[in-house]
């Protein structure tokens, strides 16, 4: 499989990265080089092989249903949450107006 300029433009749009026409054109051979190389994986016989789920044997732990048990993962933290916001007003984050 290989990509053309239209595909690269589409991927870039999906990834929300604005690329100029020139950047798209430059990216095409780069991506194709990498894709052609990774496609050697297709040679591997994976019949009956399960995809990796957990690299080291480990069980998913579950958290107790307790509010603010750990301040690092709890709420009541508005100032910290908004502290780095490019635009914050009246306790909200601000973004360009969205028309739904």
């Amino acid at each position: 499989m290989s990509v053309d300029t239209a595909t690269v433009a589409k991927i870039a749009a999906l990834a929300r990265i604005k690329l100029s026409e020139g950047e798209v054109a430059a990216m095409v051979p780069e991506l194709n080089g990498i894709l052609a190389w990774v496609e050697q994986l297709g040679e591997v016989d994976v019949t009956g092989v399960e995809p990796m789920t957990a690299v080291i044997e480990n069980k998913q732990r579950l958290r107790d249903d307790v509010v603010n048990a750990d301040p690092l993962t709890g709420g009541d933290n508005r100032d910290a949450v908004l502290a780095n916001a490019p635009a914050a007003e009246h306790g909200f984050f601000g973004v360009p107006k969205v028309i739904e």
Binding site: R63, D65, V66, V67, N68, A69, D70, L72, T73, G74, G75, D76, N77, R78, A80, V81, L82, H90, G91, F92, F93
Partner: peptide, 25 residues
């Protein structure tokens, strides 16, 4: 539930904006 699916912030309805938000959320 009292807390969110993946964080310890509260789920109560009608709180002040962004007051029930953890660093995770």
């Amino acid at each position: 539930s009292q807390a969110k699916l993946f964080s310890g912030a509260a789920t109560a309805f009608g709180a002040e904006p962004n007051s029930q938000v953890s660093l995770v959320d």
